[in-house]
Design a protein around this nucleic acid. Structure first.
Lengths: 260, 260
DNA sequence: AGTTTGTTAGTAGCGTCATAACAACACCAC
DNA sequence: GTGGTGTTGTTATGACGCTACTAACAAACT
């Protein structure tokens, strides 16, 4: 069994199947149709277990059965399987989150109520999501700094362009000409190189976001040497708080966006 | 804990969370932000377990942490949570099904190769999906019979209309005027009432589908009396096989679509 | 007669649930 | 500043349920 097959089985497990169910499903796609014995021959699933495993897959609409002697099984098409699992996923999502919305509305604090808090976020994708969200919440101005184009990403890029189109003052700040070049085509986004005497000599700095005068996110990159190729990024953020106001002022004096 | 909350927790479990994780996630939406103690007070999750449970939720991007004393937690927004879980779902789907496509192409039988087989399908939705798929595979004619509008459904309805628009001969056959009325607005779909002497006096008959002269699906409804309100439907189908040819001829002589 | 099929039973291992213990810390009254 | 009390965060442990895996066997098939 190849590494790819192990990965596929692991993914099917995360989609709600057991290991045996995943193996049987894949085997039936290899076979087209097959008996329990056929399936156990191309997997390490014991023949005696194939019967109940395929019944379970049939219950979930992933396998069809021919009551012949011996019983023949076939997996539904890949598109049908994707669709079936997606429908189940959407159904469970709706059931769960509709309820969560209900309790949030009933018990949760007011939407406008923002606490004097600083929050941690970990992981590059989540930080990008949070940054894009904060960019969208800004009302007057956005300043975004990143040390490389990878740290801009599509979500942030889209959010910056939308806010610029909405009339906000948007500035992108980077030492890297490739980052600045991303915005050559956009009249309303200023892409600025920091003055040399204002650079923070810290290779772990990731991204910085300032919105209005009281929205802020700052991230740092993990130590690449511990896990080469894995740059665990951690950020903190705060919005509409006294902390954010103070920190925005502090950061602004440090990175000083191109007033020269 | 209400039945709704139990359902929501069960759904979150099906989305990959443990029971404790679901309870904590919901609790944090009730609270807005909270400590381990706050969470254990509004759930039955023991306080000592909240720390590792929230760490696990944070790893999955569903909770954010404020390293204060005591530690404060907040759940990400409902939209973020939906999105995060959906992205994970799509990622796992892609990883699994890309591999399945690979092995199907490499090992699976030729697409054109159809075996002399009859297959079982259970459940109303799956039968509807299969019927719609078979309708789409027909090339010259489609005949569809159902005893009530509920047994037509949106997927089948759409498929019938598309095939009629594609130029196939499409006939809908039903004793129920409400079913026939569905197609009053469509010039190319003939909706016909069976002759009285040709009716099958069988209250368990569900749906019948004939495509060309070698595609067939027949379903029966379960016994409503055993589980009131639950009409477990079972169908068999066959396509491009000798079985299908024979069965199509047999059914056609039985239901005889209005040649008189 | 030998092999295969389908069903059932049983055990081991693992992950989750739930309880318990405890050192360290925070808070408060004096 | 100190002592008492409560809280916090961590760690350990056992019970339980589910899945993986093996084994046995009657019936059916070849």
């Amino acid at each position: 069994m190849s590494v790819d097959e192990d990965d596929a089985i692991e993914s099917l497990e995360r989609l709600g199947l057991t290991s045996y169910e995943g193996k049987v499903f894949i085997a039936l796609h290899k076979l087209g149709t097959g008996t329990a014995r056929d399936v156990s021959r191309v997997t390490d699933v014991p023949r005696s277990q194939v019967y109940s495993v395929t019944e379970s897959l049939e219950d979930r609409g992933l396998v069809e059965v021919q009551q012949s002697s011996p019983i023949q099984y076939r997996a539904v098409s890949i598109d049908e399987a994707r669709s079936t699992l997606r429908e189940r996923f959407e159904h469970e999502s709706e059931r769960a989150f509709d309820y969560v919305e209900t309790v949030r509305d009933e018990f949760g604090p007011d939407q406008e109520e923002e606490q004097e808090d600083i929050w941690m976020v970990r992981g590059q994708d989540r930080i990008a999501d949070r940054a894009a969200d904060l960019i969208r919440r800004a009302e007057r101005s956005v300043l975004f700094a990143a040390r490389s184009p990878e740290l801009v990403g599509e979500d942030i890029d889209t959010a910056l362009r939308e806010r610029a189109d909405d009339g906000l003052a948007v500035v992108v700040f980077s030492e890297d000409p490739a980052v600045r070049a991303l915005y050559d085509d956009h009249d309303a986004i200023r892409a600025i190189e920091p003055a040399t005497d204002h650079r923070v000599n810290d290779e772990h700095t990731g991204r910085a976001l300032l919105g209005d005068d009281d929205i802020l996110l700052l991230s740092v990159l993990g130590n690449d040497e511990e896990l080469p190729g894995i740059n665990r990024e951690t950020a903190f953020w705060s919005a509409r708080t006294g902390f954010a106001e103070v920190l925005v002022q502090l950061v602004e004096t440090t990175i000083s966006p191109g007033d020269r």
